[in-house]
Amino acid sequence: MKNDLNMDSRRSFIIKLLGIFGGIVTIIISIPVIGVFLEPLARKKPETWRSVGNIDKFKTGETVLVDFPNSSSLPWTGTVSKTASWLRRVSDTQFIAFSVHCTHLGCPVHWLPDAEIFLCPCHGGVFNKDGSYAAGPPPKNLSQYPVRIEKNEVQILASPIPITTL
């Protein structure tokens, strides 16, 4: 009788031990698997200055489309690594680089130079020439990227796609 009890407690001890080991192994395997899924969160926020042309190319008061490689391109990304910005030369020294993404749902806005508005093809959002909200569903103004002038080159800080949050 006493032996049986011993057997029982030994067995349950070994099963518990196996449970613990099994659990540890499961966790060790889960970390990289879930980790790869969540890895984009751990990556450093990609930001790179990209030249988009000589300063003389841009006329004061005009808004033009410029494209440049985005900030997180990998060797096999191809044309998909390109991104764009509506670049407005406000004065001799001041530029504004608008994100092309409508703040409603991210569709690419069109600049209409004569009407001086940005118009979104998806749901008809409208922004003024300074990027401020004008009409339609967008919840806020167009986002902007930082711009600088380096050795007469206009450079835009290629940054993450602006995500509109609640």
Binding site: P40, P46, S72, S73, V80, T83, I161, I163, T164
Partner: peptide
């Protein structure tokens, strides 16, 4: 992105990065 608090993180996990990337 409109998900409260977690929006940006979920958008990033969804795209595999901060922009459309090789991943």
């Amino acid at each position: 992105g409109r998900i409260p608090f977690l929006g940006k993180a979920v958008a990033r996990i969804f795209l595999g990065g901060e922009t459309i990337t090789g991943l």
